[in-house]
Amino acid sequence: MAGIGSARRADWIRRWAAEVDTAAARMVATFEAVYGFPPGANEVRLAGVGDRVAADRYRDDPLAAPWMADFYAVVAEVSLPDVGNGYFIHSAASALGLRDECGYAFLPHADDPRGLVIGSTGAGVLFVADWGGAVHRSVAASMDADFEPVADSVEHFLHRLRQVVHEFVDSGTVQDL
């Protein structure tokens, strides 16, 4: 999907969001009966006007991955606390707030060793997108931890997250991302 325009990318992101949100809704419908406690808010929240303003501010960051900026123009955030250990894609405003508070994440395996935190797991492991769009995962719950590559693009990361969601919803199997 490299090299496609933002409009086609936005359509792909909308389809991805609908598919993941539908899978999460299926999980929530039977969650308490299966696991014995009520689920949290498992959803893909689409971007509103304020979220799109934050997406534009994110796009202005010199280390922002264009794919991630396009994602934020469509999807405000993803909250999947009950999928495995929990997966979250933070809002653009949260990503920028963390950058302002803590700086950029250091990525020793990337071409440019800095990136913006875009998400986390329920255990606090961080996901960081570098300016080229590759996504890295911290080996511990810290901005000071080492990071390892987990996807060569934001699109690949989203594909993998969708697979993790479907696998958990369909079989209860917890996969790492």
Rank of each mutant, 00 (worst) to 15 (best):
L116N: 03
D176F: 13
A55I: 01
G115C: 09
P81Y: 13
L63I: 05
G50S: 10
L63P: 00
I89D: 02
D21I: 06
V125Y: 15
T22L: 11
Y87A: 01
I89Y: 01
V44N: 03
I4K: 12
R26Q: 14
A69L: 10
V28R: 14
E155I: 02
Q175R: 15
V28G: 01
P108C: 03
L116S: 04
G50R: 07
A110H: 09
V154D: 01
A25I: 06
R162Q: 14
A41P: 00
E32G: 01
V128I: 08
L158R: 06
T173F: 12
I4F: 14
E148V: 15
A95C: 15
F168P: 03
D61Y: 06
I89E: 03
S138F: 04
V150L: 02
L46F: 14
H136N: 08
H166Q: 15
I118P: 01
A47G: 08
D176K: 11
A93K: 13
H159D: 15
C102E: 14
G40I: 10
F88L: 04
R99H: 15
G3K: 09
S91Q: 04
D111V: 12
R52Y: 00
V117D: 01
L46W: 03
L46V: 05
H159S: 08
A105M: 11
D130I: 06
H156I: 04
N85G: 12
